[in-house]
Simulated assay, not measured.
Amino acid sequence: MAILRGDFPPGSPLPREAELMTHFGVSRTVLREALRTLTSKGLIESRPKVGTRVRARNAWNLLDADMLLWYSRVAPPMQFALKLQEMREMIEPYAAALAAENHEAATLDLLTQAHCSMVRAQNVEEWVRADLQFHLCVLGACSNELLVPLGALIGQTLEGQLQLNAKRADVFNASQAEHTAVFEAIVARDADAARRAMSVLLGVTRARIEG
């Protein structure tokens, strides 16, 4: 997280092993395993006679689940929320269209359950859990296996954003009508309507973030 926060800029060396072991209170074995993990995620690289240095930002694998979670904890909140929102706006409207075209009985049943949970929610916590599940179920209904892990990947960070948006609204379920429009379009297999409805929903989300 210190690297992601910018405490160690790209190209800068990390402290020596002895210093890191003392700072974190770990053994050499544990430290080296941690450094191997950070290497695999693209954060650092080690070279003979050069030592361990932070790699350029374009080498960082921010779509790794650990990396995304760490980054969400240290990035400026508004900056991170807008970047996550941009990602959603690129993916989810078209995912809703795919879900309308390709949903099967099992995936539609899961989406229906998530929508019903949103309707029945009595507080922010219940709403956020159901809201997150609804968006994950939309991705699951696309019949595109590459989108499912993407949803699982951003799940933890998206949950925080959904909770913030629900608390900013006049009532926690203020966007129920927009979610229902997405749901009904998917059920009707109307891809264009599903894409438009999801775009409207995400527009409401962006307005709350920026407001």
Rank of each mutant, 00 (worst) to 15 (best):
L4R: 04
R168M: 14
D190W: 03
M198S: 08
N61M: 06
V182R: 00
I91L: 15
G25K: 04
L153H: 01
H103Y: 05
L108D: 04
V26Y: 07
L162W: 03
A100Y: 03
F134I: 02
A81F: 10
A130S: 15
L164K: 09
E178P: 00
R57H: 11
R168Q: 13
P15M: 09
M1K: 03
R5K: 15
L63R: 08
T52E: 03
V54L: 06
V128H: 01
V54K: 01
I44T: 14
L63T: 01
E126N: 03
A56M: 09
A141K: 08
R32L: 13
R57C: 05
A141L: 08
A177H: 05
K49F: 15
A194L: 04
L14C: 05
S27Q: 06
V148A: 05
R120D: 13
M90A: 13
L31T: 02
A193T: 08
L68K: 03
E210L: 15
G151A: 05
S27L: 05
A65T: 12
C116A: 14
T37K: 09
A65V: 12
E86M: 14
A56N: 13
A114Y: 00
M67R: 02
E178I: 01
Q161T: 02
T29W: 08
T112Q: 12
D192Q: 11
T22L: 06
L69P: 00
L136M: 12
L38Y: 11
A185V: 05
G6F: 07
A177T: 08
S40L: 14
V74Q: 01
T39I: 08
Q85W: 07
A97I: 10
R73L: 15
E86D: 15
N58R: 12
E145V: 11
W70I: 01
R5E: 11
M90C: 12
L202V: 12
A59K: 13
L20C: 07
D66S: 11
I44K: 01
F8S: 13
A152Y: 03
K83N: 11
M198C: 13
A18R: 14
F80C: 04
A18S: 14
A95G: 08
L111H: 02
R168V: 07
A65Q: 05
S40V: 12
V50W: 00
G151W: 04
L110C: 07
P13E: 10
V148N: 01
E126G: 13
R88S: 09
P13W: 09
L111R: 04
V74G: 00
A96T: 10
A96V: 10
E33S: 14
L84R: 10
L69W: 00
L146N: 07
T180I: 08
G140R: 02
T52Y: 02
P10C: 10
R16S: 10
M67E: 04
R120V: 07
K49R: 15
L62A: 01
L110Y: 04
P13R: 10
G140M: 05
F134P: 02
G42L: 11
A106W: 01
S199A: 15
I44N: 02
R36F: 07
G25W: 06
V171W: 05
A191S: 13
N165A: 10
L35Y: 05
A177V: 09
A18Q: 14
L82E: 05
R129A: 06
P9W: 03
M90Q: 14
E125W: 01
R88E: 13
